[in-house]
Amino acid sequence: MTTKHEFFVDMTCEGCSGAVTRVLNKLGGVQFDIDLPNKKVFIESEKDTDVLLETLKKTGKEANYIGPK
């Protein structure tokens, strides 16, 4: 069973969203959508939200967990 989670990630351009895409692909076991203009990342995964948040923070951008979607 997977839940969809909403995260804020302070992305400003395609480079940022590209970095987010790559760290999430590297993590694996996730399905995600990136909304660059609104600085949101929607992730569907069985993984813990802490793990997902730490992964997003690897990009060096500010990231916060907003909640389940």
């Binding site: 351009c13 480079g15 940022c16 590209g18 970095a19 790559r22």
Partner: peptide, 8 residues
């Protein structure tokens, strides 16, 4: 590779 701007 993959940087596009100053924030990267």
């Amino acid at each position: 590779n993959g940087m596009t701007c100053g924030s990267c």
